[in-house]
Amino acid sequence: MKTIEVKGISKNFKDTRALDNVTLTFKENRIYGLLGRNGAGKSTLLNLISNRLFPDSGSICVCGEPVMENDRALSYLFCMSDQDLYPEGMRVEAAFQWSGVFYPDFDMEYAKSLSKKFGLRLNKKIKNLSTGYASIFKLIVALSCNVPFVLLDEPVLGLDANHRDLFYRELLDAYANNPRTFIISTHLIEEVAGIIEQVVIIKEGKVILNDSMENVLSMGYCITGPVAAVDSYAAGKKLLGENVLGGLKSAYFWGQYDTDPLPQGLERSSLDLQKLFIELTNA
């Protein structure tokens, strides 16, 4: 079974608990959104999965094999992060060639065609690339290496709107032509909301949500109206947060909304993924 199984993973850094008993499964051929506030633990999780860090407890298995120090398990994944890991002086084209050595299924022609689309010059030194183009370079490697699990940590850092648009389309194209699992960790929630199927939200090192987009969007809603009416409606329901403007209150709820008619003066509206995320992750 092609999955990434994260079981009971905990990781501490000095006095911070970055991840606390995290258990997750990433299935094959799916696009996941890994969301969380700054410092929530997303990057730590991705670094643990890709053998860059060691967990304090728990285990991670890729396609049934423990990933730690295991070349075979590691060959099933590629992790793209904002760190610059390429040697001083290496040029883009050489980096592509080395990717072909380390990843046998790396598609050089595809990488070159993507470089052309994005305007990435093959003879440029990687260290001389701007933030945006450094991300583009790493994205192209990630899309071209044709492994079952592609981990993208803030993939669109520094990319202008045009390039971001192009990236999402290329990702969907690659996903359609050659299905694999993408795990996208990002702050740009609204942009990825359309393309992700499964949402994982991490808050302070714990997984607080792990569900399909459909379910998630159907579980969040907002009630607006006079303060008293909203408060009495809120009784017995799971309140995520609220917003008061004078005598008008908006309250955000989590749960299957009933289709019964609302009490006088109240209005119901939907919560998009970003609004939901904000309410779920506010302290």
């Binding site: 969907l172 359609a176 359309g194 987009m213």
Partner: peptide
């Protein structure tokens, strides 16, 4: 095709 629709609208192919 669903692929074309997904790329055109930037949505997941399953959707």
């Amino acid at each position: 095709s669903t692929t074309e629709i997904s790329i055109h609208d930037k949505i997941n192919p399953a959707t």
